[in-house]
């Protein structure tokens, strides 16, 4: 084992995949000398050269569309958007080309592309650089959506994404980049489509993903001191969703709260709640709770942004409300 930050883990995954497969290349804005907006690609230009680390103009639609075309030609692009918010500009290419290309060829054409993007608030970056976009993308069959919560998963899931023959949206949380964790030395992957119980408990299932897994674990520690034994499940992949692992946890604890940073309305929590009541209705002992951001744009100022975001206390409060009702 070695200790890596999420940033280092993602960089290592890209580096190892670049070395492993000549078809892999990186494409995005200021990836080369600049090293990427969050320095994910730092040092890669020197090692792999400009044909593998491709800097584009500020053209998100062209970045995504060009990646689709290159993938159709048998290459395996890893595209980066500076901020997940910018996916709106590349959305047509993502929705109408990337997601549909395999179906429109009736499975005869693989489309191996990874679209990486950092999302989330907490860095006072304002309303256009802080949003959580996964539910915007969730209603599109043909894509896979991966949101790692730690360095181990970030590296293993990204390597799986690069080797996947389907388009994978790989959503990183910018507050996780400096989070350190244990990562195995040498080759490993984490399968796409598998959730993970990251803390066992018997009283309630806190179901979360990305940065909110950290907050959910903090909440579980606080709740433990108050005699509430919470289980924390990391969804890891929103599409395909590992319904069975989530349902199994809920069948055990008989209660569930879903925690994500995106606003509650129309968020992934609604979808997860729906599949859980289908899969575990007879086991549920309380309504399924949801914790998310407020129904506003992401405010800029620190105090406002902190009030907007879900946090450990909000999770604790929601769990208590469900457990003691």
């Amino acid at each position: 084992m070695t200790i890596l930050s999420v940033r280092q883990a993602i960089r290592e995954a890209m580096r190892e995949e670049l070395l492993r497969d000549d078809k892999v290349f990186l494409i995005g804005e200021s990836l080369g000398p600049y090293g990427g907006s969050f320095k994910l690609t730092e040092g890669l230009l020197a090692e792999f050269g400009p044909e593998k680390i491709m800097d584009t103009p500020l053209s998100e639609s062209a970045i995504v569309g060009c990646s689709v075309g290159a993938a159709m030609m048998g290459f395996r692009p890893i595209a980066e958007l500076m901020f997940a918010d910018f996916v709106t500009i590349g959305m047509d290419q993502l929705v109408n080309n990337a997601a549909k290309m395999i179906y429109l060829h009736d499975g005869a054409l693989p489309l191996p592309l990874v679209l990486r993007m950092p999302e989330g608030g907490g860095a006072t970056m304002g309303p256009h650089h802080s949003q959580c976009v996964e539910s915007w993308i969730l209603n599109i069959p043909g894509l896979k959506i991966v949101l790692p919560s730690n360095a181990h998963d970030a590296k293993g899931l990204l390597k799986s994404a690069v080797r996947d023959d389907n388009p994978v949206v790989f959503i990183e949380h910018k507050l996780l980049y400096n989070e350190k964790g244990e990562v195995p030395e040498g080759e490993y992957t984490v399968p796409i489509g598998k959730a993970k119980v990251v803390r066992e408990g018997k009283d309630i299932s806190i179901i979360s993903y990305s940065y909110m897994v950290k907050k959910s674990l903090e909440a579980a520690d606080i709740l433990a001191k108050e005699g509430i034994d919470a289980e924390v499940v990391d969804v890891r992949t929103l599409r395909p969703l590992d319904v069975e692992t989530l349902a199994e946890s809920v069948r055990k604890t008989e209660k569930a709260v879903i925690v994500h940073e995106a606003p509650v309305t129309g968020g992934a929590g609604g979808e997860i709640a729906a599949v859980l009541q289908e899969a575990a209705f007879d086991y549920l002992d309380a309504p399924i709770g949801r914790v998310g951001a407020l129904e506003t744009p992401v405010p800029y100022s620190y105090t406002l942004e902190q009030a907007y975001l879900p946090n450990t206390q909000k999770i604790v409060d929601k769990v208590k409300q469900l457990v003691t009702r």
Binding site: F25, S61, A62, C66, G69, A70, M72, M73, G74, N96
Partner: peptide, 23 residues
Amino acid sequence: VCGSGIIGGALPVAVGVGLGIKK
């Protein structure tokens, strides 16, 4: 190359095919 029902939506894809040809 598969087209798009979104007018102009195929142009970036074609550029990607051009990149593939060059690569």
